[in-house]
């Protein structure tokens, strides 16, 4: 088991945002967490990456408790989060954005290693190579999502946390991003994906969790969830589309 989240309770001030949430991610899997806006999906990712801390419960990564670690320690251990709404550094160019993704690796690893990952990012997103010198903020929404994803990959994570990668993107681009995510799995990257676009997420993922108001209410294989009546009713807009 790569990541195990055990009964965590996270608060935003007085708001109880995560209630006894448990889940796990195995090596090489894509796991989707679906649910409506405000269900606690982003809070879950932020708690894993150390931006927020849970009051109770435990998070274990590769057998090591990471519950109380700060974000830089978590990134160093191999978890990289691609934030919601992309959050690229708008007034830095594409190249600098990517280099900052590898921030903790500079000086600790040989330059060639970092360059190798940069080449890999340019290989999966050739458009980023063409736009190297362009400011992050001048890219289109889809390109910014590619940049955010590429930046996340530059940390060379074992576990990639994707927060709503489809948000605000045209269907064609959503398909492109999800195709790349599937490709990353082939390269051995494990992904925990949080999405409102339940159909696209479950089609890609091996397993899924359904969250409602801070609770995990369902968990199963993606296939089962796609077939589940309650999931279809609540998240897939009835039968097929």
């Amino acid at each position: 088991m790569l990541l195990e989240v055990k009964d965590i309770n996270t608060y935003y001030g007085n708001i109880h945002a995560l209630k006894d949430v448990s889940l796990h991610v195995d090596n090489g899997e894509i796991v989707a967490v679906i649910g409506a806006n405000g269900a606690g999906k982003t809070t879950l990712l932020n708690t894993i990456s150390g931006v927020l801390h849970s009051r109770t419960g435990e998070i274990v990564f590769e057998g090591r408790p990471i519950t109380k670690l700060s974000p830089d320690k978590v990134v160093h251990l191999g978890i990289s989060q691609v934030p919601e709404r992309r959050q690229v550094f708008s007034t830095l160019d594409v190249l600098d954005n990517l280099l900052l993704g590898a921030y903790l690796r500079h000086g600790r690893e040989p330059k060639e290693e970092i360059q190798k990952d940069m080449d890999f990012v340019f290989e999966i997103f050739p458009i980023l190579k063409d736009r190297q010198k362009q400011m992050g903020g001048t890219l289109s929404g889809g390109e910014q999502q590619m940049l955010a994803l590429g930046r996340g990959l530059m940390a060379k994570p074992q576990l990639l946390l994707l927060d709503e990668p489809s948000l605000g993107l045209a269907p064609l681009l959503v398909r492109e991003i999800f195709r790349v995510a599937g490709e990353l799995r082939e390269h051995g990257t494990t992904i925990l994906l949080v999405e409102q676009n339940a159909r696209a997420a479950l089609r890609l993922a091996d397993r899924g969790y359904v969250m409602e108001t801070g609770n995990v209410v369902l968990e199963d294989t993606s296939k089962e969830l796609l077939g589940d009546e309650r999931v279809q009713e609540a998240y897939l807009g009835g039968s097929g589309s």
Binding site: S49, V51, S70, P71, D72, V75, H76, S80, Q81, P83, Q87, V88, F89, S90, T91, L92, D96, L99, L100, G101, Y103, L104, H106, G107, R151, A155
Partner: peptide, 23 residues
């Protein structure tokens, strides 16, 4: 310098900078 760029990143978007491991 990488540190200078991290510094700017922190000024542009502190939350994203934190996710890059910038303290």
């Amino acid at each position: 310098t990488m540190m200078g760029k991290a510094f700017r990143a922190c000024a542009i978007n502190p939350r994203a900078a934190e996710l890059m491991g910038i303290n």
